[in-house]
Design a protein around this nucleic acid. Structure first.
Lengths: 127, 127, 127, 127
DNA sequence: GTGGTCTAGACCACT
DNA sequence: GTGGTCTAGACCACG
């Protein structure tokens, strides 16, 4: 069963998008793998304190991307092969790293300064 | 006149928020300073391919934060003192860089991988 | 449910203002009372042939005046006490009737002519 | 020369409309007659404290209705015959009286009460 | 030309 | 179904 303990909801876009992103990050990290079960819509909506429709929409999008499978009356589960994992991972990395690069360039700092800043933040979160 | 050449629109939240963020990043970078003129609503909306009202909303928010001033019939311009610049810069670093580092960590990649990825994207965007 | 059957849209100012005025007149008349439900944004917008956002703006203004209350997912309803009703009624009489009488006087007609004209229009609208 | 001393600007619609209405009311009252001269755009804009373009728009609308005539380099003046005056007067009366009737009906008072209210306001403004 | 406002349509989250 | 928000286009008054 996929855990949503580390899920933190912010205001960066629609809630269903944040859920989709959370799942994808877990896949990229290897924490979510082929065959893993997803919580039921009802359970997850109670856990996150959001409307069941919102969970439904997130699952629907993942289904459209063929990342999960849902069957009536049965639990939804993750369906992934090697290539799919790689694709998800690369898409995420490009997006996130691209965001950093844009931000840093707009703030007018050099690559070296950016790397230094990221390294510092990385380690400060370590403790 | 403030340049929007480096502005890149993505799907990270409302367009007006992206514009606000772009301005603030420019302020943090020192590229935008006290007294600088903003492009008019029409000009910028044509340049970015969005509705003039979207620009208006971004400018309105910046005005509410007392970062710019608008007068009917006259150009909007930036109004900043030293302290305000510092505040803007700190808010940006807290809100953005931290979130991005967290995303990388959630995806389970190492600092070295992250730095390599960022360097690659940095240079590929250079061209 | 508050009825909008007698609502007549003219070109006297913004549509949302006309809606606000209509509600206030109903309150002054006692036809709209504490606890009454308002039609939903969609229903009323279809009935009046305007955009749902226009209705939204009218309701928002009434909410700012603490005349109605809105909660996401639930119907909006009127919240009034005796004093509030009196205030609304007095504002209406001051703002409207006086202006109309002035208009008549500016046009240089006598009270008798005005009364005759009003009586005729009153009955012609009766049908 | 038509006097604008009694002109009072409120927020009931666009300024140019208020100017047009003021002229028409004067015509209906007989205070403005065929051949009367209008103030120049520059003078009136200074007197009312509004932009010359706004005056220009009001004059343009009156010209379109063939109520005034403008010639380059010469003063604008009113051009009216008996029938035109009658038409203007009737349109205004219908509009104003119609507004009263709507307001009163919506406020749920009877014709007798409405007449009483109007009579009282009429006389109270007399003093 | 400038900024300010009104109306419109689509999308999101919630009961 | 409900209300809330974002984007869009047109109009108004001003320098």
């Amino acid at each position: 069963m996929i855990s949503f303990e580390q899920f933190i909801m912010d205001d960066s876009g629609p809630i269903y998008s944040q859920i989709v992103r959370y799942i994808k990050r877990g896949i990229a990290a290897g924490a979510i793998q082929d065959g893993d079960e997803l919580p039921s819509r009802r359970m997850l909506s109670a856990l996150l304190g959001v409307n069941p429709n919102t969970i439904q929409k997130a699952y629907r999008l993942l289904e459209d991307e063929e990342i999960i499978q849902s069957h009536t009356g049965a639990k939804s589960c993750v369906v992934l092969d090697e290539r799919r994992v790689e694709t998800v991972r690369n898409q995420l990395l490009e997006n996130e790293a691209g965001a950093i690069v844009n931000a840093m360039k707009q703030m007018g700092i050099s690559l070296e300064e950016a790397v230094a800043l990221i390294s510092r933040l990385w380690n400060s979160g370590e403790q």
